[in-house]
């Protein structure tokens, strides 16, 4: 196929057009990103990041981490967990707390239960209260483990 000077000029224009379009689309996403970052900065005092681990080791050997999960400041553990997983739970009025029945469709079964831990002083501590009662702190690390309960720790 032979290209005349006219064709080459027009194809050059088309090439420039594609460059401009790519630049505009890249700029669009850059602006979107900047807007989102600005929004995050704006809400910096109202949000915090936490690390959530869901440990299915005793079920199938899997451990899944959700690091830097953004939650509202003052968020409880149950709400934070609901952000990263499907959680079924029951509220027990006598305990004034909720009991987690299943995470991601892995249900308590009489021998194994979902227990939660917090990472303090370089070791895992059993969660002292129900997940909906425990208020998270910024950058806190929490683990849900499907296990045969071994408390007291």
């Amino acid at each position: 196929m032979e290209f005349s000077k006219r064709s080459l000029t027009i194809f050059g224009l088309g090439w420039l057009t594609s460059l401009v379009l790519v630049g505009c689309v890249a700029g669009y996403y850059y602006m979107e990103c900047q807007n989102l970052l600005a929004k995050i900065r704006e809400y910096e005092g109202c949000i915090m990041r936490v690390n959530i681990c869901i440990n299915y080791k005793e079920l199938n050997g899997t451990i899944v981490w959700y690091n830097n999960t953004l939650v509202l400041a003052g968020c409880d553990l149950l709400s934070a967990t609901k952000k990263v997983a499907v959680v079924n739970y029951t509220y027990w009025p006598s305990q004034k707390a909720s009991f987690v029945d299943a995470i991601n469709n892995v249900w308590n079964n009489g021998t194994h239960y979902w227990m939660w831990y917090r990472w303090t002083d370089n070791h895992w501590d059993y969660g002292p209260v129900g997940a909906d009662v425990y208020i998270l702190s910024p950058n806190e690390t929490i683990m849900w483990r499907y296990e045969k309960p071994r408390y007291p720790p």
Binding site: M1, R6, S7, I10, F11, L13, G14, T17, V20, L21
Partner: peptide, 28 residues
Amino acid sequence: LGKNPVEITDPPRILNLEVSFLAASLTL
């Protein structure tokens, strides 16, 4: 383009491409 009636009745592929590219630039 000049006076070339053959190109209008049976345009070569390069001419279709040219028109497409020109349309792209002008649309931009």
